[in-house]
């Protein structure tokens, strides 16, 4: 049995150590920390003692790329079209069902047009799960990093985001999700290359077909061209083609 009170003293030693260390850390970062200008703050290195306070309104921590808050829609700045095709997958995977999509219809044919007429997200229901962004096949909806959305007056008008409020240029998306954006560009390139190859294959096949038709020998080349014509449409799934070349 140790001396009564030694345990308490030991514990107080720990608090004293913490107390001193906070100042020791301050001395270590003197000059660096005293900066008045807001500086982007990276995640703290766990090697430091204790924890550095983030002086929030003055300085903002850099959000990791995967961070998710409220979703937003991506607008293609090149074509100035929204990427969304109103396929409805995000509305289906949304766990609290806070996404409402009204599909555009062609006024003449009543056929659906791959663009949303209305798009609503109720942020007072949204649970920031990120499923919409994860399962969107067109990279049209992404999770925002901006957590500074408060409403002071009317949540029904301010916190139910409509299409205009949700739409962000893809440059914004590229800024906050650089890795994701790079992957998208690569995908796009691959897609284009595929399409190009398919078009070439088709051209070759057509030429062959024409030649075969001209020669009038049905047996041999016909079997040869069959696979070529078959492969031609496959790299172009009907849905995937929509965002690259809008239907209008």
């Amino acid at each position: 049995m140790s001396l009564l009170g030694s345990g308490i003293l030991k514990g107080l030693g720990v608090t004293l150590k913490h107390f001193i260390q906070t100042y020791a850390e301050d001395f270590k970062y003197i000059g660096k920390k005293a900066g008045i200008e807001p500086r982007p703050l990276r995640r703290q290195n766990p090697g430091n003692h204790g924890m550095v306070t983030i002086e929030y309104p003055k300085e903002h921590m850099v959000m990791p790329e995967n961070f998710r808050y409220i979703p937003f829609l991506v607008k293609d700045t090149v074509t100035n079209e929204d990427k969304c095709t109103s396929c409805g997958i995000c509305a289906k995977v949304c766990p609290p069902q806070c996404i409402w999509i009204l599909r555009t219809e062609d006024p003449m044919t009543k056929r659906p047009v791959p663009a949303p007429k209305e798009f609503h997200i109720d942020t007072s229901v949204c649970m920031n799960c990120g499923f919409c962004a994860e399962f969107c096949p067109f990279d049209a909806i992404k999770m925002d990093h901006n957590y500074e959305i408060t409403s002071m007056s009317n949540r029904k008008t301010e916190l139910i985001f409509d299409k205009d409020r949700l739409m962000m240029p893809d440059t914004y998306h590229a800024g906050i999700h650089p890795a994701d954006w790079a992957r998208e560009l690569e995908d796009k390139k691959a897609e284009e290359a595929k399409k190009k190859a398919a078009a070439e294959a088709k051209a070759v096949a057509d030429a062959k077909k024409a030649a075969a038709a001209a020669a009038g020998t049905p047996a041999g080349p016909a079997t040869k061209t069959a696979p070529a014509t078959k492969t031609a449409p496959t790299p172009k799934p009907p849905a995937a083609a929509a965002p690259a070349e809008p239907a209008q």
Partner: peptide, 15 residues
């Protein structure tokens, strides 16, 4: 059961 049919394709927002 979800997904609710009112969300898409005729999903006009209604609280």
């Amino acid at each position: 059961t979800k997904p609710y049919d009112s969300r898409w394709p005729g999903g006009t927002h209604r609280l």
